[in-house]
Design a binder for these strands. Structure first.
Length: 757
DNA sequence: TTAGGGTTAG
């Protein structure tokens, strides 16, 4: 058998059996011991789908003296077919050990293997071999070296190889340029781009990508238009579309895509994914549907990233059925991201049960799956479920990352689960986990809402970089804890750091003024917000000012401010005025405002209750009953007061008048004790708050079953001093509870924090 | 044999 017969036979080879016959012929005739003939066999077998890779390997292992070509082929096959660059590099050592000589094709393969492993160390070793064997002048070798260093982030070495080259081809230029693009080095990239002897499409496309990533949309567009005049290709269009999409110019992205279609360029899966993502951003399901149809037409429907982008699109637009259809039809094409996207899609659409079902049925859960579920629970106010899942996640040995931690901590905040929150904080420190601005801010938020100002300040001062939300959390938190002066001086500090305040900052600042009744300061900050910082006050700022004026008895000014609002006043704003009317006994205005509100928002419980309270405080029981009737007629149910307290890592919930707690008899006993003790101290219950037509003794009892009092009593029983008693409440605390808690604190010598969240 | 495009999950 001759080599040319072998080549001809291989060319005709159609079946695995043919190949085995050809192989046995080469062995029987002894042709296999000819290194060139052996290389033809290996080359064919590694490239052909007829032969399994293991079979090629077995042939290779039986060869006595494979030549460089054969070694190269088998090393490349390890890298490309098996995706095993490490094995290729191992084989290279064997190659040298057998005293075979590498050729100029050997190093591009091996250097690519190093690039795939991002292994600069191995690369440098090979670089030395390249020089030793005298291939350093080869332009292919040089280019792969440049690429290797660029990928390993060592642009100085890449640049050095480039500079030392005797000749440069287009690939050399493009590779160096790609390195700077990847490193995000605009200056050097532009310099290289300008220095190129001729600018080709690939280089221009790289520049479009770079400018797109850096937010320089106009520069990208200029280059795009330049290429357009020369020779653009699919990538040019695609890069420009994605540039718009990444910079949130979704309309432009869609327009350009339509133009691309119209110009007759082939559309592929990559550009389609960018376009679908643009549709998601602007919640345009209709356009997305068109693109989806187009993708099906060009036959890229099975592309998993596209499926994922579509699941995201449809679920973001509330079209959960369509999202689900893609997921259900996906079968084996789906990946981890598909599952996670579907879970968060369900959660976004409020189908907690579907999300749970999918979550518990998924083959593999990663951090994202867990934290999607945890934060989904938290977003739907299922805080206990969120925390329980966070703990379950750790039992499964999954390490929480920043996002999971943020969700868990915010669940702690809402549950007043301070101990668990502190445990998470300690866990972060112990494991030296990355603390980013969001995580720190969440911790600060938790501490201030649990009344631990010291801990909050500790986190705050330890932060390297503080964002506006960090300042907001501390300003708001200090004010919330009654540390008004500190809060306002924090605001002054913030201004010194040149951090620009936003509308939330002013909520904190105005809230601080309200807390202390600082009317003049409030006016000053409100005006500086508008004139100095050019921030339009929102409805909450107005509400805050109305409350500030109202509490100070400036009812007229408060009402005038409401009338001057550019938007319709909301519940809180009217509520503030109504509350002020009650406090300052302006029943005329109170009734007027209250009646108006009931008409405006017949479904809101707060107004009815406030108005009813106004009547109750005057003893006008007829009117109270009338309001009750209106409430019943509109199906308005008073939101029950609910307080939470954490003891020994368990969160206990109390509703007003609640008798369901297992320790209720102890609690009632404690309340009686408290009542007796406080009466000695001269406490008189403010029964005017109770809008029931019952006698005073019954009113006292009702008052003493408010949820926060139950929780505090429970705290007195279960939490040993000096640990403070911390209670979280869903509604604002009533005057009586406020007084009572202060008295308990004194009489029992306990630190007590009741927080309204 | 070396160079250019993308997104999607919390």
């Amino acid at each position: 058998m001759k080599v040319w017969t072998l080549d001809a036979a291989l060319q005709r080879c159609q079946w695995p059996r043919h190949f085995r016959e050809i192989l046995s012929q080469t062995i029987l005739t002894g042709l296999i011991s000819d290194p060139y003939a052996a290389s033809r066999v290996i080359n064919f077998s590694t490239r052909s789908a007829l032969v399994p890779f293991d079979y090629s390997l077995r042939i290779f292992n039986h060869l006595h003296n494979p030549n460089a070509f054969t070694w190269n082929t088998i090393m490349r096959a390890h890298f490309e077919l098996r995706n095993n660059p490490h094995q290729a590099l191992t084989l290279y050592k064997l190659f040298l050990a057998e005293h075979a000589k590498p050729d100029n094709y050997t190093y591009p393969i091996l250097l690519q293997c190093c690039a795939a492993r991002v292994s600069e160390f191995e690369g440098r070793e090979l670089h030395a071999h390249v020089v030793r064997f005298g291939f350093h002048q080869d332009v292919y070798v040089r280019n792969t070296l440049i690429n290797l260093y660029a990928i390993c982030g060592s642009m100085s070495s890449a640049r050095q190889v480039f500079e030392e080259s005797p000749v440069w081809d287009l690939v050399s230029w493009n590779t160096v340029l790609a390195g700077y693009v990847q490193a995000g080095n605009v200056e050097e990239a532009e310099r290289v781009y300008r220095g190129m002897p001729e600018r080709n499409t690939i280089a221009s496309n790289s520049m479009i990508v770079l400018f797109g990533r850096k937010g320089c949309v106009e520069k990208a567009r200029r280059i795009f238009d330049e290429v357009r005049g020369r020779d653009m290709d699919m990538v040019s269009w695609s890069a420009m579309v994605s540039c718009y999409e990444q910079n949130e110019m979704c309309e432009e992205a869609l327009v350009l895509f339509v133009e691309m279609k119209a110009s007759g360029v082939t559309v592929d899966e990559i550009v389609v994914v960018s376009v679908v993502s643009a549709c998601s951003r602007i919640l345009n399901a209709e356009m997305g549907r068109l693109v989806h149809g187009l993708a099906a037409k060009v036959g890229v429907e099975d592309y998993v990233s596209l499926k994922n982008a579509l699941i995201h699109l449809y679920s973001s637009c509330g079209e959960i059925v369509d999202a689900q259809r893609i997921f259900d039809d996906g079968g084996v094409l789906l990946d981890q991201i598909s599952w996670n996207s579907m879970i968060s899609g369900y959660l976004r659409c409020g189908s907690i049960e579907s999300a749970e079902k999918l979550f518990y049925s998924m083959p593999e859960k990663d951090v994202v799956s867990w934290s999607a579920m945890i934060s989904g629970y938290a977003q739907h106010e299922c805080f206990s479920e969120a925390l329980a899942l966070f703990q379950e996640m750790q039992l499964h040995g999954v390490k929480p990352d920043e996002t999971a931690l943020v969700s868990a901590i915010s669940a702690c905040t809402h549950l007043a689960a301070l101990d668990i929150g502190k445990w998470i904080h300690a866990y972060i420190n112990k494991n030296k986990l990355q603390i980013n601005t969001i995580l720190s801010t969440t911790l600060i938020d938790m501490y201030v809402k649990c009344g631990c100002v010291e801990n909050a300040l500790e986190v705050f001062y330890a932060m390297q970089e503080k964002g506006v939300s960090t300042w907001n959390a501390i300003i708001l938190g200090l004010a919330m804890n009654g540390l008004v002066e500190q809060s306002l001086s924090m605001f002054a500090d913030m201004k010194k750091t040149k951090t620009l305040p936003n509308e939330i900052t002013f909520m904190g600042v105005l809230g601080a003024c309200r807390h202390m009744g600082l009317v003049n300061e409030g006016r000053h900050y409100f005006s500086s917000m508008i004139h100095e910082h050019k921030i339009e006050p929102n409805i909450k700022h107005y509400g805050c000012m109305v409350d500030l004026f109202g509490r100070a008895g400036l009812l007229k000014e408060a009402e005038e401010l409401i009338e001057s609002m550019p938007m319709a006043p909301d519940v809180a704003t009217w509520g503030a005025l109504l509350g002020a009317c009650r406090k300052h006994h302006d029943n005329e205005m109170g009734e007027r405002v209250g009646r108006k509100l009931i008409q405006l928002q017949p479904n809101h419980d707060g107004f009815h209750v406030l108005l009813s309270n106004i009547y109750a405080s005057k003893g006008h029981w007829g009117n109270v009953l009338e309001i009750r009737g209106i409430m019943a007629q509109h199906g308005v149910v008073k939101t029950p007061g609910c307080s939470m307290i954490e003891a020994n890592g368990i969160v206990h919930e109390f509703l007003a008048g609640d008798k369901t707690h297992p320790q209720i008899s102890d609690i009632e006993h404690m309340l009686d004790e408290v009542s007796a003790k406080l009466k000695i101290e001269g406490y008189v219950p403010t029964t005017s708050e109770v809008s029931l037509d019952i006698d005073d003794e019954e009113k006292e009892t009702a008052l003493f079953r408010h949820s926060e009092k139950l929780a505090v009593a429970f705290g007195l029983i279960t939490i040993a001093p000096p640990t403070p008693i911390r209670v979280m409440k869903n509604l604002r605390i009533c005057n009586d509870c406020h007084t009572v808690v202060k008295l308990i604190s004194k009489a029992f010598d306990r630190e007590i924090v009741v927080q309204y969240i």
